[in-house]
Every structure is written in C-alpha cells, then in structure tokens.
Design a protein around this nucleic acid. Structure first.
Lengths: 184, 184
DNA sequence: CCAGAGTGAGACACAAACGTCTCATCTGCG
DNA sequence: CGCAGATGAGACGTTTGTGTCTCACTCTGG
C-alpha cells in the first residue's frame, strides 16, 4: 500500500532532516517498524533516500498545483504557495540539505521542472511590476526555497511555532525586515 | 602552524558543504595533502569536523566584531554585518547543515553566544523602530542565517555571482521581494 | 481451530571507511 | 655531503553499517 510507504517516508524525513547520516536502525525505529520490514519495503538505503526525495518533490509539485501559481497576481500566487508549501516544509528542508540527491538524473529533472515553475512565477511578477527587478528571479527562487527549508528546520526543532510559520515566511520574504512608515 | 591548519580546514569546507559524507581521502586530496598527513594534523574525522565548525564560528564572531554590530543604527549595523559575513558564507553554510555539531557543548555554547548577539541586534532594531515587530527577533535571526547559508551554497555552485551576493542578501532581507512605489 | 501472510528479533557475511603503522622519498640546513 | 624532520604511498587490522537469511510469533480470514 502506498499509504504505508508514505508514512514510513514521513518518519524517515523526521530523522534524516536532522541527521542525514542516521542509521537505518534508527529510521526503522522512528517509523515504528523493524529493520527487516524496512528492507522489505525499500531495497536499501540509497533507494530509501531517493524515495524520500521523490516524495518531497511530489509534495512540492502538488503545492504548486493547489496554489495555482500560474493564476492571478504574482503576489497572491506566492502567498497561496506559502500556505500550500508550509505543511511540507520539513520535506523541503530535506531536499535542500541532500545535494547528493541531484546526482540522480530522474530526481534532478523533476527538480528542474518545479524550480522552473517557481522562477517563472518570479519572472512573471517582475514583468507585471510586483517583484523587484534588481534581484534576479533565480536568486528570488533560491532564497524562497532557503527560507522554506529554514522554516522546516525551525519548526521541527521547536524554535518556531507552526501557526506562525506561514505568516513569518510570507511577511519576511515579501516585505523584508525593515519597518516602514505607513504608506497609504 | 595555525595557518596550515586553517588552509586545510578551508579546503575541507569546500568539500564538506557540498557532500557532508565525503571520505577523508577526498578531503585530503582537496587540501593537497595525503590522508596520512591529514591524520597527523587532526586525530580523526570527528575532530576535523569539530575544528571546521569552530573555525566557522570564529569567523562569524570576528565578522560581528568588525561590523561593530553593537554600534550605530541597527540597519547600518546589519548592512555592515552582511558585508563582513559574505566572504565566509560557505563556512556558515556548513554550520547550518551540520546540526550534529551542536551535540558538542563547547561548540554549542559558542554558537549560542554569537546567535545571542545577532538576536540582540534585531531586538535593538525593533526597539528603535527600524525592524518590524510582527516578526520575532528569533525568526529574523534564524532567517538571516538561512539566507547567509543559501548565499554560501549558491556561490559555491556557481548559481550566484560573488559580487552580487552581498547586495542580494541585504536587499532581499531588509526590503523584501516586493517592488514598492517610490516613497519619498 | 487451522492455514497463511506478515512482522520482529537476531545471526551472519560482506563491504567500506577509518585509524595505525611502516618505509621510501623529498626538503632544508649545518 | 650528510642528517634530521616532514611528507606521500601503501599495507594492515578493526570497526561499523549494510544486506541477506532464518526462525518464532501474531493476527486475520476461512
């Protein structure tokens, strides 16, 4: 059952995002199964890592879908994306930390696809005048992902309340840290 | 000689920030020395990692010093900090990715010290009205570090030009991604 | 109650990385 | 030239994680 697989993968993320070198033993215990069963589901460590990455990318992809990032104003689209992606921030944190994943061409291609959608969103926003043009769309895309990953880590470590996370992300990314006098 | 040690550590960062599980063999080759000599300088892998972390924290600490983050307006202080920390962004990226480092109480204490200085900067900025108060000083501190680490990765992978990095970081963090109509 | 599938616990061999050692080579200096 | 110190190359044993296997147990459906 795919549900079972996914639940194991979610447990794996909880461990791996904190300690990428965690033993399979530890991951199995975190998932509430034995190492033997873990091996029955995933052929080996490499496959497990790859599946976790693939899950993260699928989640990110559906987040882009449900947020309808290609529709409406770029700012509203980004705010929708923030709301949609925050629940899966831990998976994104894993994706950000596991550069080794991108050695796999399949994973890499999938990532390029999603990244292109995000870059396109920023490019569109720049063309319609809502996003600043002094900052490249590539950097905006990268920084956005960095902050999502940061949210994932911070929430997981208990340094940030989950309820605040979407607000904190959107506000900082869009408006910055500087307080500005009310400009009506 | 400490200089020699540091040059090895810098080479180690170049490898480890990309692939934290890199073999000592690889690190030694990147540093231009043999595995035997690497073992002569550092007792083992654990010690090496710890020393890299300590170097990163020392650099971050001196960046806080040379930026004089406790002096002048909080915004100007942060801009100085950005300029001072960007050259060592790769080391910060390593610090961000290696959560395991903070198991060592010495490293952890040193980190707490630096983090407290950054949080104090944001707190001061909030009190003097330059930083937004809707975002907690803790989150601002965390997000700032996330972006510094992101800069480190992006520059290392060639996705961001080093010359742009300080500007990109300061502008996005302080003013956000949204373009705003000129507000004189 | 029984049969069968699925699971957990443990044993075992294998591979890889690590830490240590030895020895040949190179370099700088008297 | 000769010597001392440092380095590189390589071999060796050890440790650790992994992958595979077996066996006993449990749970479910007939």
């Amino acid at each position: 059952m795919a549900t079972d697989r996914d639940s194991v993968l979610e447990a794996a993320v909880g461990v791996l995002s904190r300690r990428p070198t965690a033993h399979l033993d530890e991951i199995a215990r975190a998932a509430g199964i034995s190492r033997a069963t873990l091996h029955r589901i995933f052929p080996g460590r490499e496959a497990l890592i790859r599946e976790v990455g693939a899950l993260g990318l699928r989640r990110f992809s559906t987040a882009l879908d449900v947020a309808q990032v290609e529709q409406g104003s770029a700012e509203a689209a980004l705010r929708r994306l923030v709301d949609a992606v925050v629940p899966d921030a831990a998976l994104c944190a894993f994706l950000a930390g596991e550069n080794q994943l991108y050695d796999d061409p399949e994973i890499n291609d999938l990532w390029e696809l999603q990244d292109a959608r995000v870059r396109a969103l920023f490019l569109r926003g720049q063309q319609e005048g809502t996003f600043r043009v002094e900052l490249s769309a590539g950097w905006l895309s990268e920084a956005f992902f960095d902050l999502v990953a940061g949210i994932g880590w911070a929430v997981q470590e208990g340094r940030l309340a989950p309820r605040e996370s979407a607000f904190s992300l959107a506000e900082l990314f869009l408006d910055g840290a500087l307080r500005r006098p009310d400009t009506p």
